[in-house]
């Protein structure tokens, strides 16, 4: 690695035909201490589609999602075996900072920083050395527009982000994640803290966003998965039970367990 220059070279991201998997997990096992959370999950996640991951709480769906940008490493030392790929490259071998730039994440509860709206969205670009005023302005506007928040906040960019409503805060977090121009967006139950109207707005967003992005969304809300996703994967006790096109999963599931779960006859 030529450390003599101050900017690290990045592998040029190869072009991706939409039919190829952008993210792939192969026999992925994750254990915190003696507790195995994921027990060998294999799943291909295609580009420019919304993939929903459903399953009862504690099934490992959140951990599974977090593995794709390795944010799970923050919750303590985890033992990960198997393989996770981003565009065919081993994700565990990538530098986490670069990985997380390319694979953004939105959390369960909106977590805006206690800063202005502008500084929240500009946070990411600044991390990666964007300093020019016009570049930053552009990135902020771009992020906010894509998150359908621009019109609501364009006149008060200097206001504190804490003053926004819950739904606005969550869209701000989406804008913040989009401002670093990621290729994948991971969403961990992004609407669980929101009211139905705010939820609907976010679901609408997914349709627009998937033109540019690959989206993986964890949800416990069956209707949301049915409405907003193209593909659905059902996880149970750390194992993948079934995955496929959302329509198939919801109308004609291959396993009785899946049917039990989506029809609410579970546990």
């Amino acid at each position: 690695m030529p450390d003599s220059i101050l900017i690290e070279p990045v592998m040029e991201a190869p072009l991706h035909p939409t039919d190829r998997a952008r993210l792939r997990a192969e026999n992925l096992r994750v254990a915190y201490g003696p507790k195995e959370v994921l027990k060998g999950v294999s799943l291909d996640i295609p580009a420019n589609q919304v993939t929903a991951i459903i399953g009862p709480s504690g099934c490992g769906k959140s951990t599974f999602l977090k593995c794709f940008n390795r944010i799970h490493e923050l919750s303590g030392p985890a033992k990960v075996t198997g393989r996770i790929e981003l565009d065919g490259r081993d994700l565990m071998a990538m530098r986490e900072v670069e990985l997380r730039r390319r694979v953004g994440m939105v959390f369960q509860k909106p977590n805006p920083f206690p800063k202005s709206i502008y500084d929240n969205v500009a946070f990411g670009p600044r991390l990666f050395g964007v300093r020019g005023r016009s570049d930053l302005d552009g990135a902020v506007e771009d992020g906010l527009r894509k998150a359908a928040l621009w019109d609501e906040v364009k006149d008060r960019l200097a206001d504190s982000a804490q003053g926004l409503s819950g739904g606005q805060q969550q869209r701000l977090c989406i804008a913040r994640a989009l401002a670093v121009q990621p290729e994948v967006l991971l969403m961990d139950e992004p609407c669980s803290a929101l009211d139905p109207i705010a939820t609907a707005r976010i679901e609408e967003l997914l349709f627009d966003l998937k033109r540019e992005l690959t989206i993986v969304i964890v949800t416990h809300n069956m209707q949301q998965a049915a409405r907003a996703s193209d593909r659905t994967a059902f996880l149970w006790l750390g194992e993948l039970v079934e995955e496929g096109p959302t329509e198939t999963i919801f109308t004609n599931p291959g396993k009785p367990m899946t049917e039990d779960y989506i029809t609410g006859r579970f546990g």
Binding site: N69, I71, L74, V97, E98, R100, R101, G104, M105, F107, K109, N111, P112, F113, P114, K115, F123, G124, L127, F128, C173, R176, A177, V180
Partner: peptide, 27 residues
């Protein structure tokens, strides 16, 4: 401080120190 602040910063690609200096300490 809520853990989600650090997570949010790290998910954007912050290093540990960037998260500390630009999010945690100001908060």
């Amino acid at each position: 401080l809520p853990r989600s602040l650090d997570e949010g910063a790290r998910a954007l690609g912050s290093t540990t120190w960037q998260s500390i200096a630009s999010v945690l300490i100001p908060a």
